[in-house]
Nucleic acid binder design. Sequence first.
DNA 1: GGTGGTATCGATACCGGTATCGATACCAGT
DNA 2: ACTGGTATCGATACCGGTATCGATACCACC
Lengths: 334, 334
Amino acid sequence: MKKKTTLADVAAAANVSKMTASRALRGAKDVSASSVEIVRRAAQDLGYVGNHLAASLSSQRSELIGAVVPNLSNVVFAQVLSGISDGIAGSGIRPVFGVTDYSEEKEYDIIRSMLSWRPAGLIVTGLDQAPATRRLLENADIPVVQIMDNDGDPVDSCVGFSHQQAGGAIAEALIEVGFRRFGYIGCGLELDKRAAKRRFGFEAALKRHGLEFLASSIAEGLSSIPKGRERTAAVLKQQPDLDCLYFSNDDVAVGGLFHCIDAGISVPDQLALAGFNGLDVADGFPGRIATSRTQRNEIGRIAAQLVLEAAVSKGDMPSQNIVFVPEVDLGNIS
Amino acid sequence: MKKKTTLADVAAAANVSKMTASRALRGAKDVSASSVEIVRRAAQDLGYVGNHLAASLSSQRSELIGAVVPNLSNVVFAQVLSGISDGIAGSGIRPVFGVTDYSEEKEYDIIRSMLSWRPAGLIVTGLDQAPATRRLLENADIPVVQIMDNDGDPVDSCVGFSHQQAGGAIAEALIEVGFRRFGYIGCGLELDKRAAKRRFGFEAALKRHGLEFLASSIAEGLSSIPKGRERTAAVLKQQPDLDCLYFSNDDVAVGGLFHCIDAGISVPDQLALAGFNGLDVADGFPGRIATSRTQRNEIGRIAAQLVLEAAVSKGDMPSQNIVFVPEVDLGNIS
DNA sequence: GGTGGTATCGATACCGGTATCGATACCAGT
DNA sequence: ACTGGTATCGATACCGGTATCGATACCACC
């Protein structure tokens, strides 16, 4: 375990002071072009790799950004991370991530742990943190951007959409084209607050039209295609006389579609299916599944940029609230 | 922008020295239970959040781990990150990620930038880094685990599988059950070295049996369902007389399946499709797509654990080479 | 009482950079 | 020659923790 070469080594090799070496490598002012050249070469020769820990500690500004998502097996949050990665591209900032598995305790621990890295900002999924977690965010004194939701009261900035409204909007659209006998199939609503909001919004729209879910099944744990398949079978067995099924998201809906294909149920003629997110997969089936298209990549990217802007403006940037509206896509339902 | 409370503040509030406060909060030895209690309470009252930058700098050990993946829109690498997250759960270590977009330049920059955070270890996708990047990894003096590949010479440890072998294995299986007229459809092989290795392995197996690809189409850019669909249409138009199509991965294959459904081609009776990865989606179709199931969650998890072990053993742990074998699944092809 | 051991604590010196400010040199203008 | 300004550089003091080692107190035991 040989010692790493430090800035002092580079400075010594270049016959300048640490300070000049530091300035040269950072491209700061107050260094002559010739010094820069010499220092650069020395750093190159020694294979010098800077130390962001020391730099951040000393300069009191970090080049880390935290991203907290509930889950990564689902492609949606992966795309959010992807968007974040795009949003900070070229800034030299590195993203740190944490997966909460929809657990409030884990979320608290992750955020606390992230804060101890003194990040330039934090991007957190959702608006429904536990009170202690929220206090942590409020006192963090760094830009905080909550994403993927808009139903609630953000700590600071917010980039997302209203799940309640999204649920209501697709319900209205489906009612408009004539569906009346609705069923619901979801996964893990006790944990996924946003899926619960969609269901709530959908159900509220039904009520406005004097309708209700005639059957409903909520599986525990993460959403998945197999679960959607199984629950669809169960619900249809219990209540075969439905004309439209609303699913907590596209994965579950695709599971439902698979069941229908197996069972010889024609979609959407005999039974319409509606999900949420607008995934590629669901897309591929030529419009057979209705869905709400969410702009998750965009949301990640914009959230990251907000953090960057807020970080450079050093606290005198007002909180932003950027609202997206998922686009209802009924596919080939007419 | 009020100043953050530091350890010194906590120590002052608790009427002890910084050192005692530090020990108390870390649960280190040499502190009385009563001191721990007092310091804990003081920290709690002040809302103290530690500073990992300072801690890591001082103790010369970081609690970050770097993860480099080529892409995050594809669920495969998201699941790798998910596995990494699982693997380090409870260790207090935070994962930093970087997305290379299959670019060697970005990969170099990302790894360099990660090294400057002095991470406890690095997990990097693939074995085919550019020479300069490889030197960076070799001189990093921290555990490096290369994942998702095994065809090549690892820098340090390796957790993956042979893509060449995987391509060969599924080819053999498909030949075994009687297919003879093969076509190939892929995306971005110029960048995705691993997909290219699979194709190479597949083709080598064909050659061993005196066969070859009768048609082939390679799209540029990232793999996607739409591209698979489009290319399948194109290839079948050019060469309709095929009995099996090998795709660069399941996404592309699902695109192919969608085309077949549209075009009324019965799968696998008229035309068999084979992909790679064993995605849930492909799974859902009752075995219609042949695939090789990869253990990406496992790979991420084990890689993370290797890094942890190597980090605690401080360099005297030998490099590991953990080989998985993707399981060939022909689905309902008989 | 003297000795040795253990438990607890604090002073000090770093870790590897950067902010700050003063020093120096050099040039232009008068 | 003198003044003022700019360009370049280095000494020093941190940033907020932790490693290390010495100091102190207290107890057991001979």
